[in-house]
Simulated assay, not measured.
Amino acid sequence: MGRPLVARGQSGAKLVISDAHQVLVDAIGATLPGSSWQRRRTHYVRNLAPLVPKSASAG
């Protein structure tokens, strides 16, 4: 994931936003040291939606 970016000269990434797949998180840590990781909001909400009771939904 990060190797192609590093190979093209990218450096100094401060924040990486991706899915929460552990392989991605590990690759980001290995290839972009010092950067922070954040889970994509879309996936976070998508995983939470089934846990919210229908009575609490706006629709």
Rank of each mutant, 00 (worst) to 15 (best):
S18L: 06
S57T: 15
D26G: 00
V25L: 10
T42V: 11
V25F: 00
S57Q: 14
A49W: 10
G29M: 02
A13F: 14
R40I: 09
V6G: 01
P53A: 11
I28M: 03
D19F: 08
V23F: 05
V6E: 01
G59Q: 14
L32M: 13
K14L: 15
A20Q: 14
R39C: 12
A7W: 03
K54G: 10
R46C: 07
L48Y: 00
V16G: 00
G34F: 14
T42L: 05
S35F: 05
A20V: 12
Q22K: 15
V52D: 05
Q38T: 06
G59V: 13
V52A: 09
V45I: 15
R46I: 05
T42D: 10
L15R: 02
Q22F: 01
K54V: 11
R8V: 08
L24R: 07
A58C: 10
Q38H: 11
P4Y: 00
S55D: 11
V23M: 06
L5Q: 06
A27C: 11
A20D: 15
R41L: 15
Q22M: 02
S57H: 15
L15P: 08
H21L: 11
Q38E: 09
L24V: 06
R8L: 04
D26V: 05
P4N: 00
A13W: 03
A13M: 11
Q22T: 10
R46F: 02
A13Q: 12
S55R: 04
Q10F: 14
K54S: 13
Q22V: 04
P53V: 15
L32W: 04
N47T: 15
A56E: 09
V16N: 02
A27V: 00
P53G: 03
V52Q: 05
V6I: 13
R39M: 05
T42H: 10
G12H: 12
L15T: 09
H43V: 09
G59S: 14
A13Y: 06
P33M: 09
N47H: 07
G59R: 13
P4K: 01
S36N: 14
R41T: 13
G34L: 10
S11T: 06
T31K: 06
W37K: 04
Q22S: 11
I17F: 05
A7E: 03
S36K: 13
L5K: 09
D19Y: 01
L15G: 07
V16C: 12
S55W: 03
A49N: 09
V25Q: 08
V6Q: 10
Q22P: 03
L51N: 02
V16Y: 00
V6F: 02
K54F: 13
R40S: 15
Q10Y: 11
